[in-house]
Design a protein around this nucleic acid. Structure first.
Lengths: 334, 334
DNA sequence: GTGAAAGCGCTAACAA
DNA sequence: TTGTTAGCGCTTTCAC
């Protein structure tokens, strides 16, 4: 049997309440008794049981994190931002991978509630009605990180994907390609993908072009699918000389796909990515890309959650962080 | 107030015990009553409270995971392996980043115990005596993943780092360089680093060379430090024409550091990495490297932990997984 | 097959 | 400043 608060109380000749007070830093304890208690805690090697504490206080100081895939270079960066802020506010994280599988997502949300998390951070491409329903009946605060809920009803932290994609596409247009190619990994129902797409389309239309479906290539987030996209592009006759890729990892694949066929980037064709993961500087040529502050999105989402958990006032529950474009060497200098 | 097992019992005209039985799939319940209970659970929207359950049963079905940095491409892959097997055995994961900071590590271990995890998976470079002491008094099973405890007293899953480094170095020697350079990120007290180093040294000695300290370069795990190492190498006069780098990410830095100065890999100088992270195929030339099965290490470590948690018999508590070397294009073909 | 009741280890009134 | 006591929501004997 482990040593409990009761053992400490008995050995220190005080009540459980007093022990509880010193453990919780309650100031209403005479310094002398505090010291006495602290000593016997030390002596017995007492370690508070967080589960019992959670049952009694209805607070677990842990938050749930549902993430598509922690091994993704994009999401793991987000997760780090979440954990750092969580640690700062004395929370721990229960982390689960969903693989963007709807059933699993719904099941995980439920598991998190069963485990009595004090809050939930959710990441995932598609926020369906079922998601919204389950999330809206949540017993605890929820915040979305890098995932947009079209109904705008759940707190979230994002960048403006539409404008970001518009700007990336426009950069390419200004550099001389009237209808850049778009390589995307469209998930069904993904509001993020939708917004990137519509930013892309808007840029094309503003350049007085009508959108050519042939120039929109479906890939699947992987590096390899980027390489395949490159091949597909080279097989077109008279293809546009610029491509906008919706994630950095695929963009690396596109670049290498070109290079492997002897096509030079950016001389023969330009490439811009999205996210600015660490990969962007780990290629040659270095990748021009849209900077999405992943760590910050995670950190801010967690901070937002703490505000809800502490009933602090929040001004704006749908935070939009700034983005920008870094021009590196995969696009032509002006 | 939430709906509890007591509410369900009352509404279904049975005892709490019976409700508990159906919730836990205990067969000793008449099908009719089971159905009745299930119906009222559904009707009331009852959701078991895992915290209360944990307090009563002394099992939380969650395991702690202490990891140096989840945003690392190496560790996030390990974490994925851990979570997948955890999910398979119905556990959740409490994940915390330690940054390999000893105080934080020790504190985190304690927090995990307070939270009453059923087991603990630990990753970290240095297993000091303090670590061993704290881990040995653990109330629950522990397993180390990709981290070696020199005292060999804690269950672990690893590859043989000494042999792996020996083989990588030997490959370079056989390709014609008698004393390859070694770029490492030596942590103090890191048994893994130590073993890699000693494999490297053994290979050099077997080639009848004495080790030249000048050819051992300290970096810090980062891509940038790899680039700096490359520069340092190019500044040596008459440097060896092969370098063994102790992680893939640094190896990419080394390759690009060379290329940025117009030095060709592998024609002018060969490079081999370590780990075989996804990065290894995302460079040009693709990286020859030591394959460390990161996902599997995580998965096996978690599986090992489940065995301990279920009191299954385990034959070997220090598992050594196979490794191999993939020769890609950063080394010369035979 | 089902129920009664005693905890699990702690917090949080409330009293003193 | 300190102690008493009633739960928190569940599991788990032990009876029946």
């Amino acid at each position: 049997m482990n040593v409990t608060i009761y053992d400490v109380a008995r050995e220190a000749n005080v009540s459980m309440a007093t022990v509880s007070r010193v453990v919780n830093g309650n100031p209403n304890v005479k310094p002398a008794t505090r010291k006495k208690v602290l000593n016997t805690i030390e002596r017995l090697g007492y370690r508070p049981n967080a589960v019992a504490r959670g049952l009694a206080s209805k607070k677990t100081t842990t938050v749930g994190v549902i993430i598509p895939d922690i091994s993704s270079i994009f999401f793991s960066e987000l997760a780090r931002g979440i954990d750092d802020i969580a640690t700062m506010y004395n929370y721990n994280i229960i982390l689960s991978n969903s693989d963007q599988n709807k059933d699993k997502e719904l099941r995980l949300i439920n598991t998190m509630f069963e485990k009595q998390v004090d809050g939930l951070i959710y990441m995932g491409a598609a926020i369906t009605e079922d998601h919204v329903n389950q999330l809206k009946t949540s017993p605890v605060p929820v915040s979305l990180a890098a995932t947009v809920d079209a109904s705008n009803t759940i707190p979230s932290v994002n960048i403006d994907y539409e404008i970001a994609a518009y700007e990336a596409t426009t950069l390419l247009i200004q550099n001389g390609t009237t209808h850049p190619i778009y390589v995307t990994a469209e998930d069904e129902d993904s509001a993020v993908s939708e917004r990137k797409y519509s930013g892309y389309v808007r840029a094309i239309k503003e350049a007085n072009q009508s959108v050519n479906e042939e120039y929109i290539i479906q890939a699947d987030y992987s590096y390899e699918s980027g390489m395949e996209a490159a091949e597909e592009i080279l097989n077109m006759n008279d293809y546009p000389k610029a491509v906008f890729v919706s994630t950095d990892e695929m963009a690396l694949g596109v670049i290498h796909g070109f290079q492997d066929k002897g096509v030079q980037v950016p001389e023969d064709i330009e490439v811009v990515g999205f996210d600015n993961t660490r990969l962007a500087t780990m290629v040659r040529p270095t990748l021009s890309t849209v900077v999405q502050p992943m760590y910050d999105i995670g950190a801010v989402a967690m901070r937002l959650l703490t505000k809800f958990m502490n009933n602090e006032k929040v001004d704006e529950q749908n935070v939009v962080l700034p983005h920008r474009i870094v021009e590196r060497n995969s696009t032509k200098a002006e």
